[in-house]
Design a protein around this nucleic acid. Structure first.
Lengths: 218, 218
DNA sequence: GTCTATAACGAGATAGAC
DNA sequence: GTCTATCTCGTTATAGAC
């Protein structure tokens, strides 16, 4: 088995049977790569920089990842799960007000705790999502259609005001991700970051308040 | 006067006394550059690509702009005005509901007609706004503080619900720019773009409805 | 002002010793 | 698995003729 084949196999198997130290190295590289790619993009980041940040040599990095693009794709793959997780939990069994309240908080927690993931996702979208277009049209679309139907059900039952469910979802995504993607702007204008607990709670409360009132039936 | 000096002078004078054909070329290059930088970033775009798109040779382009970074900065400078214009019009003399209604529409018009500008602005923010930080802390901050005071005045007068003005402004920015920056995602999930007149009006109506109701006093 | 040719450099990727 | 050395290519930027 040649090296690239081994690597490809490892990637598809989710690296199930690799040894622990190898996993640590891969994880370190992926984490370093996320941090840099999310700020400077694929072309704005050199393999050298990623290697340095991860504490490995460039050629060693290229032993684990066949080339820069493969590394980038691996990072994106991990990313998508982080990004999708909060949406999956959005449930039809809950009270609509509570479901929206919880969803907004979960998304803001991601913006606070994984701003890198949010930013790289945004970067990818801006560039036309060359590598995520497939997932968008497939998995994400399925989930969104399902959640939209749930929201539409609430509206038909008179539990929410008449809004287009997809626009409501976009609005929640936009307002919550804004605090990660435009963190510099938020900081320049308010002096605060989501890392500040008081500001975080204030943000959660404001977004929840406007959205809930905006779609409320009362 | 050496070439770089001439160029720098031309840039600062706003190219007031340059001849028309020269202006056309500069404009063509700037426009081509905006289109490419906004998709692929500074490092993802080559001078060659910009030149080709603008219909000039690479070395000719480098006659007008001393180097790639200067070109990038020129593009950003133009950008900021496009981005700020709708906010400047946000007026204290209007009825609050009307002011917010109009502002949302204006921002969505920009998202529809200048998605490149919106995307490049977003790219710059994601990267930490190395070149716009100054403007953010200065001019933008001043305008935002002023507009926030206006909103606070409306709240104190009981004409709007109690919201933090800055979060309201962020919410409007986020929801409206989303349709430009995440256009691929919006298209993948709805099949539509703001270029579609019906979808545009539907978007305007939805955003206005939720925000207005969300901050309304009734 | 515009062109062709080319210098100079950075960065991705590979070869091969250990 | 990890390293050093090196090849190769794309890209920026300049030199200099017209």
């Amino acid at each position: 088995m040649t090296k690239p084949q081994k690597m490809a196999a490892k990637a598809t198997e989710n690296a199930a049977k690799a040894t622990a130290p190898v996993q640590n190295k891969r994880a370190a590289v992926l984490s370093a790569a996320l941090g840099l790619f999310s700020r400077f993009g694929l072309h704005g980041t050199s393999v050298d920089q990623v290697a340095a940040r991860a504490g490995v040599s460039k050629s060693n990095l290229l032993y684990y990842f066949a080339n820069k693009e493969e590394l980038y794709v691996c990072v994106l793959r991990e990313l998508l799960e982080v990004w999708l997780a909060p949406l999956r939990e959005f449930s039809a069994e809950q009270d609509p007000q509570q479901a929206i309240t919880d969803y907004i908080r979960r998304k803001l927690v991601v913006s606070r705790d994984s701003p890198d993931a949010s930013r790289l996702f945004c970067l990818e979208m801006i560039q036309g999502a060359p590598l995520l277009k497939g997932e968008l049209a497939g998995e994400l679309r399925g989930i969104v259609e399902h959640k939209s139907a749930v929201i539409q059900g609430w509206i038909d039952a008179g539990r929410l005001a008449k809004v287009d469910p997809e626009h409501l979802i976009f609005m929640i995504w936009a307002t919550t991700q804004h605090y990660a993607d435009f963190a510099v702007q938020v900081q320049a204008l308010t002096g605060k970051t989501l890392a500040d607990p008081a500001f975080f709670e204030q943000t959660v409360a404001n977004v929840q308040a406007v959205v809930l009132k905006g779609v409320g039936v009362r």
